[in-house]
């Protein structure tokens, strides 16, 4: 058995993966799209942290970004941004 420091948890799920589209490539594309959507949100939040640190401290370091803890109001603002962002990115066409 591996030691606890070497554990790599499995990232694949056991069980049949459903397809919601005729072409399974579209199911795969949706995974790419949602991962990418998430990464844009992550990048945006990192930028937001940088801006907030510059506002309050006038300078920024990687360590300060890592240590940054948003207060409840900031967390609320960020949640509202994510909500609005997803509503824009995942805009559905009107049903035909």
């Amino acid at each position: 058995m591996t030691t606890s420091a070497e554990v790599h948890l499995p990232r694949q799920t056991k069980g049949k993966r459903p397809h919601f589209f005729e072409d399974p490539s579209i199911d795969q594309m949706m995974t790419f799209l949602l991962e990418l959507t998430t990464e844009v949100g992550v990048l945006r939040e990192r930028l937001d942290t940088v801006e907030r640190l510059l506002d309050s401290e006038g300078s920024v370091t990687r360590a300060a970004i890592e240590a940054y803890q948003p207060d409840a109001a900031t967390e609320q603002e960020r949640a509202a941004w994510r909500d609005a962002y997803l509503k824009r990115v995942l805009r559905m066409h009107a049903p035909e």
Partner: peptide, 29 residues
């Protein structure tokens, strides 16, 4: 890490978007 926390926050909101907003839109459709 900072970015992992941000990722978790995004995933929570995608999950909310599916289970609340899209669920409602599906029912309406």
């Amino acid at each position: 890490t900072h970015d992992e926390r941000a990722r978790q926050g995004m995933v929570s909101m995608i999950r909310k978007h599916a289970i609340i907003d899209m669920r409602r839109a599906l029912k309406a459709d």
